[in-house]
Write a protein that binds this DNA or RNA. Structure first.
Lengths: 341, 341
DNA sequence: CTGAAAGCGCTTACAG
DNA sequence: CTGAAAGCGCTTACAG
């Protein structure tokens, strides 16, 4: 049943039916009531495509990230995506989950949707500037908000939610220092320069020797962490910051296999603070990001950009960059130095 | 730029432009080429709403689940959602992530989209029959595939991917029995009758006393598991099956706090086999479901239903029920009985 | 407050 | 292989 048939049935014009449903324009309350009741009885709902064809607006956004070889490595993105979907819902947006394998380019479908008006905006979880720029280049027809660890210089049109690793990592290193740790190692993850830089800065800020800080490369899996911790133990570290919680769990396991106990003999700190990290054994200290805040900030910016674009207004002068501080969450994987260097 | 302006620019009719993009109808290859090049140069992309208005098809599906108080309890759903998005992408569908708080009804937006043609179908992750039926009642205008632990009787229009808990739980109990366990407890989760029934059946199949099997209620959190295991230890169990992996982790921790070691003194088995369960300490034995298979089955059925509906064909006689067996994944949280009852 | 009619941007029988 | 025109189902300025 379309609006024509339905309006005839209701004894009004299509314009009146449209006004009843859209809430735009004046309409007598009684008429509106009657139309709603009739619609309920006869099962009429306005066709959403026809509405959008007029509206130049869809109230759909996409969250885009590339997935890994195994879901365990996507926990960070999945948790973020869920928070984004929640925050988007609050503002009346529906969220498309757009996934792509790490090595592949965004699907043609996404491009079609974006260029063809099927999407109001996109939230991109990015881990490299080059990747982000390439993405923005491809999707310049609609607003994009980038979530990243860096304060990248991006084209005007894009928003940026910047996760400030320095704050939380700084706290972590300060905490370790005050517990007596002076030889602190690092296990590298993928595309983690922001994290590693923050680590080096934090060492310096604490008056520790950043130049000779031992580092090993993960970069990804639990097993990588198990192996990497071996290298660092040879370098006589007493504490290790790991680029991800998964690597940290691997490090704990790897240490254990070598007879080194956490936290008695070695302190381990992860980064990301996944939801299960409080429940590992020992509970894993980690540098956490407030995912809910990030999601809300990203949606707020995107909504702003979408509204500006739709209204054809001059984009407000305000900066579309929002910085979110990470913070250190101490847990039982930390202890005082037992065998100072 | 719309099709009218663009077709003028290209010196052809709108019909020809449409044929070039849609792939429908005959069109000279050279014409098509020229149109594509021009479109690329001038930045023309067909408006997707206009296309969908004609097509009665959107190639968008939604995956719907209700989220919990904390993301940790949503890992199961999030992992499933990601797999569904992947599987959907392969078949050319975009996936909407539709979330609702546990206590709330599906958003009006979802209903609008579904009734107004904005969605081809929905995949519902359900944990109660009443909930699923209410949902189906509300969304009877489009195909729905339910993912659930039960072989529920559902209206014709719905598909069902049924996760068969009995297989994996049966294997788990058999494994415990052969390791000498005779007194096996259960920690309840939320809406877990399928799991508990499977547990009782498995006990019987192994010739164990199901009637007197100790059970404690979680039902949700890590702390719930910590508490529940206390009750079961008083009941002198030597092994425990937990309704979720989170409860199982809590149980391990709770046992540890009481001086009971896993697996030396007590064996613990979880259900769900979350991606991080291989990496807990000890690695957690669990009853797992092949998420990728489930997602693919759900998408295959939904695609079938959508295609049938769209084509207005008589729905094929084939059953739209697909059963997926769970399976037991033994890991280091298991051991032989140390102090037989 | 309500209606007639043009317009949103495509697609697809129909005719050639 | 291509075009003219009706149709997909709404919305909204315009007139009353």
């Amino acid at each position: 049943m379309d609006i024509k048939k339905f309006s005839r049935l209701a004894g009004v014009s299509t314009a009146t039916v449209s006004r009843a449903f859209s809430g735009n324009g004046r309409i007598k309350e009684a008429t509106r009531q009657r139309i709603f009741e009739l619609a309920a009885t006869h099962g009429y709902t306005p066709n959403i495509h026809a509405q959008r064809l007029n509206a130049r607006r869809t109230d759909i956004i996409a969250v885009y990230y590339s997935f890994s070889t195994a879901p365990i490595f996507d926990y960070y993105n999945m948790e973020l995506a869920q928070e984004i979907a929640k925050a988007a819902g609050v503002r009346g947006y529906t969220t498309n989950l757009e996934l792509t394998q790490k090595t592949e380019a965004p699907s043609p479908g996404l491009q079609r949707a974006a260029a063809g008006g099927g999407l109001d905006g996109i939230i991109l979880v990015a881990d490299s500037r080059a990747g982000a720029l390439a993405f923005l280049q491809q999707f310049k027809s609609i607003p994009v908000v980038v979530i990243a660890n860096h304060r990248w210089d991006l084209p005007e049109a894009a928003g940026l939610v910047r996760i400030h690793q320095d704050s939380g990592i700084g706290e972590a290193i300060a905490h370790l220092k005050s517990a007596g740790h002076a030889r602190i190692g690092f296990i590298h993850g993928v595309a983690d320069t922001a994290k590693h830089d923050a680590f080096l800065n934090a060492l310096q800020a604490q008056g520790l020797d950043a130049a000779s800080a031992p580092a090993a490369s993960g970069p990804l899996s639990f097993e990588d962490g198990e192996r990497a911790i071996g290298e660092l133990l040879s370098a006589r570290v007493t504490a290790v910051l790991c680029s991800t919680d998964i690597l940290a769990l691997g490090a704990i396991s790897g240490a254990d296999k070598r007879g080194v106990r956490v936290p008695q003999d070695l302190s381990i700190v992860g980064i990301d603070n996944l939801s299960f990290s409080p429940f590992t054994r020992p509970p894993l200290a980690s540098v956490g990001i407030p995912r809910t805040e990030i999601a809300e900030a990203a949606i707020a910016i995107l909504d702003q950009l979408v509204t500006d674009t739709t209204a054809d207004a001059t984009p407000s002068a305000r900066q579309f960059i929002h910085t979110i501080n990470t913070r250190f969450i101490p847990r039982a994987s930390l202890g005082p130095v037992s065998r100072p260097a």
